[in-house]
């Protein structure tokens, strides 16, 4: 069980690293939120599940199981909260009228000036 937890925590760290690199290197708000939203959610989930298995492997008693259940509850809560927060941020950005990044220069020129608040509807 210890090896399972080591593998899960390592892959969680790898996802965090990927999310951080994506946050620093990607061109605009939407792609950055894409990297951090996905990477952070699954990364933290993997780390918490790895800690759950580690706790069970070193402390196979009633108190250890209780601690593990608390960790599971934390993971479930995070799994609901983080994607919702990302969704809300992205929706707010889209309704404010931030244009997505594109290689096509024509796309960057705001043709719908004055009604840019209505793109999200």
């Amino acid at each position: 069980m210890k090896y399972v937890s080591v593998i899960m925590i390592s892959s969680g760290f790898f996802l965090f690293l990927a999310a951080t690199i994506g946050f620093l290197r990607l061109p605009d708000f939407y792609t950055r939120m894409h990297a951090t939203g996905k990477g952070d959610t699954l990364g933290l989930l993997l780390i918490i599940m790895g800690l759950f298995f580690y706790e069970l492997s070193i402390n196979w008693t009633w108190s250890g199981v209780i601690t593990g259940l608390k960790l599971i509850a934390m993971a479930l809560f995070w799994f609901l909260a983080s994607p919702t927060a990302t969704h809300t941020l992205l929706r707010a950005a889209f309704e404010t009228g931030i244009r997505p990044w594109s290689k096509d220069k024509e796309f960057l020129i705001d043709k719908t000036q004055g009604e840019s608040n209505d793109i999200g509807r």
């Binding site: 809560f77 609901l80 909260a81 919702t84 969704h87 809300t88």
Partner: peptide
Amino acid sequence: DDIIVRTVARFM
């Protein structure tokens, strides 16, 4: 007016 946020908030 966002059904996702409302549903998750009602649960959380």
